[in-house]
Structures are given as structure tokens and as C-alpha cells.
Simulated scan of single mutants.
Amino acid sequence: MQLPYELAHASHWELRKNNWNDNNVEEKVKESWARGVQWELTRMVHNGYTPSYFGNYTGVVQDLIDGKAGYDQVENYTIKEIEDVLSRTSTWNDWRINLINNYNNATEENLDAIFNRW
């Protein structure tokens, strides 16, 4: 299950064109993206798979996609939409703002709550 996670880090690093270290991207953004890709790819083979979430390894990507009602009330973002804003996302707050500014999603009014939750 670790391979999708590491592939996500590699693709994110390439997407940022090496502008990755030296505090250019918050750890929480890096780790949450990788954990989200791990969830997305692994569940294609293992239905119902959910990785553990703790600290900077959040479930924000899963919550943006999953369409499950509950505490987050956010759904229907695609993995591609989430990835596309990462090239200009350095902070947790930037990620939320970039999603709002770049996509029309019926549940975007709940993005503050989901990003605050994680």
C-alpha cells in the first residue's frame, strides 16, 4: 500500500518543478496529498480501503471526493481537480482557496469546515 503514497510524493515534487523543500510546501499539504492518492489508488483494488489518518497525514482528499454525508458535507471533487491546484499551493489555506477559486462545486461552502476539521 506504500507504493501509491510514494508515487504521489514523486508526482507532487515534479508538479512543483523542484520547488518543494525549504518550507515552500507545508508538510501537511505534502502528506495529505500523498495519503489521498494512496486512498484513491488502493481502493481501486481493495474496495473499502481507508488508510490511517493522524497528524499531517489527513483525510482531506478522501473527504473532498467521497460523497459520503457526515461531518464533512463536501463531495464530488475529482483527484485531477485536487492535483491541478497543487502546482500553486504551498499552504493548507492556499489549497482551500485554490479549490474555491478554480472550481464550481455545489458543496464548496463547506470547504472551510473540512479544512478546519483536519
Rank of each mutant, 00 (worst) to 15 (best):
T89K: 06
G48C: 07
T91M: 07
N76I: 08
D94V: 12
E40I: 06
G59A: 09
E6H: 01
G67I: 07
V37R: 04
E27M: 01
N116W: 11
F115R: 02
N93I: 13
G36D: 02
A10T: 12
D66N: 15
K30N: 05
E83K: 15
L7C: 08
G36Y: 03
Y77Q: 07
D84I: 11
W92T: 05
V29G: 06
N116D: 15
I79K: 05
R43Y: 00
R43A: 00
W39M: 08
Q62P: 00
F115P: 03
L64D: 05
N24R: 15
N116A: 06
E75A: 13
E14R: 14
N116M: 04
M1T: 05
N104P: 00
E14K: 12
T78I: 05
S11P: 00
N47Y: 10
N110D: 06
T78S: 15
E81D: 14
W118T: 02
G67T: 09
D94Q: 14
F115A: 02
M44Q: 07
T91Y: 11
E27K: 09
H12D: 10
L99K: 11
V29P: 06
V45E: 09
T78R: 04
G55D: 14
V85R: 14
A113D: 13
V25L: 01
E83A: 15
T50L: 08
K28Y: 02
A113G: 08
E109F: 06
D22N: 15
N21M: 13
V37H: 03
K17D: 13
E75H: 12
R96K: 15
Q62A: 07
M1D: 01
K80T: 04
I100N: 05
Y57K: 13
V25N: 00
W33N: 09
D84V: 13
Q62I: 06
E6A: 04
R43I: 10
V37C: 06
N101G: 06
R88Y: 07
N101M: 03
N105H: 14
I65Q: 09
G59T: 01
W20F: 11
K68C: 02
L111Q: 08
N21Q: 08
E27Y: 01
R35K: 12
N19G: 03
T50M: 10
D22Q: 11
S52P: 02
Y5W: 04
N18E: 15
W20C: 05
D66F: 01
R88W: 09
Q73H: 09
A8R: 05
D22R: 11
E6S: 03
M44F: 00
L99C: 10
I100W: 04
G70M: 07
E109R: 12
G48E: 11
E83H: 14
Y53K: 05
T91F: 08
N105W: 10
N23W: 08
V74N: 10
Y53A: 06
I82G: 10
E81Q: 15
N47H: 09
R35N: 15
R96D: 09
N47S: 07
N116S: 08
I97Q: 14
T107K: 12
